[in-house]
């Protein structure tokens, strides 16, 4: 896996990636917990890994939010969401690499493009199936996902190959009390926290947010209360896709290799994170994503990078067995 790049020299938490099969893989495994030098060095290493896990977890959180919001309002697993994330990464990359935009502008452009994309996907592929069996919309989502992947692989769109992203700024490592943290990690975490706060504000302090919460409870009741359900669903798709796009741009900066199929694994992991936390519940998505990020990073660092996915999904299954609706999920009482 991975291939090609030199092992990171000094910094213990440099250029880690996490998505299997994509991008440079974590190589720095000279410190084993079971190995020799257990001491301050190991502690620093663990903390470094926890920070890496946080970075990854926050990125998963951005994607997971889109999954969970869409699931909340239309009860659909939007399999195309991972590919919206991919489009976001590409638009961001084109923005700051080809068109010379500053990074914030590139992020906003990418978010706008993907918001429109999300709304269009919903209008074309999901809205006609809203009253069909749920599985029909799921198949449609799979079709859209394949379409985005293959369409973006066409030579005159993005092309099928990996593209190396030139970072818009240099990676700088700061040493804080022996713990190395990079500006990219800080940027990712700050951006994601900012977006989470914005989302929280939107959901609980604005009319649109109230409408979204209403629709997620009951479509018909919401309609009777004068909520325009269709437009609320569109807004949900727009916000979810915009968050995924932001995640995509951050991903492209943090793990600078992108290609049209890159959305599959992060999308799947983020979706798993959403299920882990309890799908449809926004704090659950963030919690699940953070757990997922830690599990993956720590497994890769201390156990085996190949077994990473197996352990992450094994934990998912175990959690579901104990809490069948996710960690924060409400167990629905069955009614006849």
């Amino acid at each position: 896996m991975g291939g090609g790049e030199k092992p990171p020299p000094r910094f213990k938490n440099r250029s880690i990636t996490a998505f299997s099969g994509f991008g440079p893989l974590y190589r720095n495994r000279q410190h084993s917990l079971l190995g020799v030098d257990m001491g301050v060095d190991v502690l620093e290493h663990v903390i470094g890994q926890v920070i890496n896990g946080l970075q990854l977890g926050f990125m998963y959180a951005l994607i997971a939010l889109g999954y969970t919001m869409v699931y909340g309002v239309v009860k659909l697993i939007n399999f195309a969401h991972g590919d919206v994330f991919m489009v976001g990464a590409f638009v961001g990359y084109l923005g700051f690499n080809q068109w010379g935009m500053p990074v914030p502008v590139a992020v906003l452009t990418s978010m706008a493009v993907c918001a429109i994309l999300g709304v269009v996907i919903e209008k074309i592929a999901y809205r006609p199936l809203r009253y069909a069996p749920k599985i029909a919309a799921l198949i449609s989502a799979l079709g859209v996902s394949l379409f985005l992947e293959y369409f973006c692989s066409l030579k005159f769109i993005f092309g099928p190959n990996y593209r190396v992203v030139q970072r818009p700024f240099e990676e700088v490592h700061w040493q804080l009390a022996g713990i190395s943290i990079s500006n990219i990690q800080v940027m990712v975490m700050v951006t994601v926290l900012f977006m989470l706060l914005m989302l929280q504000y939107l959901l609980y302090r604005t009319k649109v947010g109230m409408a979204m919460r209403t629709v997620s409870l009951d479509h018909d009741a919401a309609r009777l209360m004068g909520v325009n359900v269709d437009s609320v669903i569109s807004v949900t798709f727009a916000i979810g896709s915009a968050l995924a796009a932001a995640g995509g741009v951050l991903y492209a900066i943090a793990y600078p290799q992108i290609q049209p199929f890159m959305g599959i694994m992060p999308g799947l992991k983020a979706f798993t994170a959403a299920v882990l936390g309890g799908i449809g519940i926004i704090p659950g998505a963030v919690l699940g994503a953070l757990i997922m990020g830690q599990v993956e990073t720590l497994t890769a660092a201390f156990l085996s990078s190949q077994l990473r996915d197996a352990i992450a999904f094994g934990i998912l299954i175990l959690v579901l067995l104990v809490r069948p609706c996710g960690i924060l999920g409400k167990t629905e009482t069955e009614k006849v």
Binding site: A125, A136, I139, L142, G143, S145, F147, Y150, S153
Partner: peptide
């Protein structure tokens, strides 16, 4: 040949839109 995946995906989406059941 590059269009194979695109057309396959389109057929998939169109079929399910026409016959959701």
């Amino acid at each position: 040949i590059d269009f194979r995946g695109v057309i396959y995906a389109l057929i998939l989406v169109i079929t399910i839109l026409m016959r959701p059941q």
